[in-house]
Design a protein around this nucleic acid. Structure first.
Length: 503
RNA sequence: GCUCCCAUCGUCUAGAGGCCUAGGACAACACCCUUUCACGGUGUAGACGGGGAUUCGAAUUCCCCUGGGAGUACCA
């Protein structure tokens, strides 16, 4: 009996302890980057798959580079992508605040603990001294590691330095922590995506955890926050691998449970360099402005490293979550190629419910007077022009002929199509007949079929016949379905345009 | 320089010793459909970076080389 109760209690305890809590911790020194979006996505997927919590934390310890506009952009982008967080600066949670600058008072406490335990020491080195050390190392072609010259400063020495007005920074004592918890200088951990990773901690160098101005450095703040927020799994880019070793040591020095880590390969530009502004858009919001759908973007980015078990690549985030296993993520870098993103975007545009598409297209139609069209006409216009769109913004150049009385004729269209004798003949005949037609699509379709059939008997290809009409009405040789165009424009406009094309 | 990570078609990837004469998707090309463009359909071309080792057998394991990426801040 007692045993039973005990087991169930242990189970319960295990379950609460192993609750999955992951986080995305962007630093608001720029708009939300697609790379960050992908990291956020994988965290989100992992949380969803494991019934865990997805947490948003803003890492703004560097006040210089932080701005509210960036914070807003991060919030908006994440939301637009459908990556909603369970805890965060705006929604709160049990482990807040979720903005590091609002947590400044809690870091010194833990720094003090480390200091008292001997895992940290004050460092009075000036930037110049440090610079000199580095230069020397480079000159001797050696890896730079801090000299630890402040490690064993006596109280008198420190006092003297303090009187000189020098404010100490706090450094973490790597070797001491490593020795305290590990057999030798090699630190290992089992990475969720890469497997066992190891590092000789002698090469790490005692890093600063508290700056002389009293604020924490990234590596320290992250650990404290992850610890306090009970983060169970840290999934982030592989550019953090070396930080991970430092952070594990801090967790251990603090006597905290070390979370599991998983490092993702990076997203590279087609030239294999880091994805940056010179390659085009990098922020999610920029992609949106360019006319990409967030559903397409997130789906595309999910495929960078992850692949579906059923081969079906078009999937919603929730569908991906079902199929998601972090160990199956590719551990190599991947290149961000627009080809597939573009294909995916056009696919999503085709799939989008018409009402939604009509709304999403409006920002790209501001140069036209939409009041010229009834809602039914606008709907139809969108229906017949959506097919070839790669970007939402492509709509701008796809529809000018639906607006205004006359139409701008492209020069080549004038000379190659309208100026030909056949075209003129077709147009004259068209006006003669069309003035008696009903301009609804069904009827137009039949009439046009008969119309080009007549010309075909005279040896004029249907294609040529239709081109003449298309050219006169739209000024182009390519575009949406002719019957739809004619129906939307209506008899008066069509006849007027054709008449003005007749010489 | 030092350290770490990675390595299958142009790109994203499947592949966890024999199912692989390496599969799929995007892009490319060809053909078909068609009143244009497009969509769609069908098909073609296209890869295990190199060298050793283990094994009856390696894309899959190990080692070396090469290549690419990342880190090396009182930035995050």
């Amino acid at each position: 009996m007692h045993n039973l109760i005990n087991t169930s209690q242990i189970r319960k305890k295990d379950m609460t302890m192993s609750e999955v809590r992951v986080r995305i911790a962007p630093s608001p020194s720029g708009n939300l980057h697609v790379g960050t979006a992908r990291t956020a996505l994988f965290n989100y997927l992992f949380a969803k798959k494991n019934n865990g919590k997805f947490i948003l934390r803003i890492e703004d310890t560097d006040a210089e580079r932080t701005s509210q506009a960036y914070i807003d952009n991060i919030f908006d982008s994440l939301k637009a992508l459908g990556l909603n967080w369970d805890e965060g600066p705006d929604v709160g949670g049990d482990y807040g605040p979720y903005t590091q600058s609002e947590r400044f008072d809690i870091y010194p406490k833990y720094a003090q603990i480390l200091l008292e335990k001997g895992f940290a020491y004050e460092c009075f080195c000036t930037p110049e001294e440090l610079e000199a050390e580095k230069e020397l190392a480079t000159k001797n072609k050696q890896a730079y590691v801090y000299s630890k010259k402040c490690e064993n400063l006596t109280e008198e020495e420190k006092e003297k330095l303090r009187k000189e007005g020098r404010k100490p920074a706090l450094r973490f004592n790597i070797a001491k922590a490593q020795k305290a918890f590990h057999e030798n200088s090699i630190l290992k951990f089992d990475d969720l995506v890469k497997g066992e990773l190891h590092m000789d901690t002698d090469l790490l160098g005692d890093f600063v955890i508290m700056k002389s101005n009293g604020t924490p450095t990234y590596n320290f703040a992250v650990v404290i926050d992850d610890m306090l927020m009970k983060i169970s799994h840290v999934i982030r880019g592989e550019d953090h691998i070396s930080n991970t070793f430092k952070q594990i040591l801090i967790f251990e020095a603090l006597g905290a449970e070390v979370p599991r880590f998983g490092h993702l390969g990076m997203i590279l530009a087609p030239d294999r360099s880091k994805l940056s502004k010179r390659h085009g858009a990098t922020a999610v919001s920029e992609f949106v402005e360019k006319g990409y759908l967030t559903d397409a973007l997130i789906n595309f980015v999910a495929l960078l490293g992850w692949s579906p078990s059923d081969g079906q690549e078009i999937k919603t985030v929730d569908e991906i979550a079902q199929d998601f296993r972090i160990g199956e993520i590719s551990s190599s870098n991947s290149i961000f190629e627009y080809d597939k993103l573009n294909w995916m975007n056009s696919h999503y545009i085709k799939m989008l419910p018409i009402e939604e598409l009509k709304e999403k297209l409006k920002p790209y139609l501001t140069q036209y007077d939409l009041s010229e069209l009834t809602d039914a006409q606008y709907t139809r216009m969108v229906e017949v022009t959506r097919e070839p769109l790669t970007l939402l913004s492509d709509i701008t150049d796809a529809v000018p002929y639906f607006f205004g009385e006359g139409v701008e004729i492209e020069p080549e269209v004038q000379s190659d199509v309208l100026d030909t004798e056949t075209s003129q003949e077709v147009l004259k005949e068209f006006v003669a007949q069309a003035k008696d037609w009903e301009f609804d699509e069904e009827n137009l379709h039949e009439k046009l079929e008969v119309f080009r059939g007549k010309f075909k008997e005279k040896g004029i290809k249907p294609k040529v016949t239709m081109w003449a009409i298309r050219a006169a009405v739209t000024g182009r040789t390519r575009g949406a379905d002719m019957t739809a165009i004619l129906a939307i424009l209506g008899k008066d406009k069509v006849i007027a345009r054709v008449n003005s094309a007749i010489k």
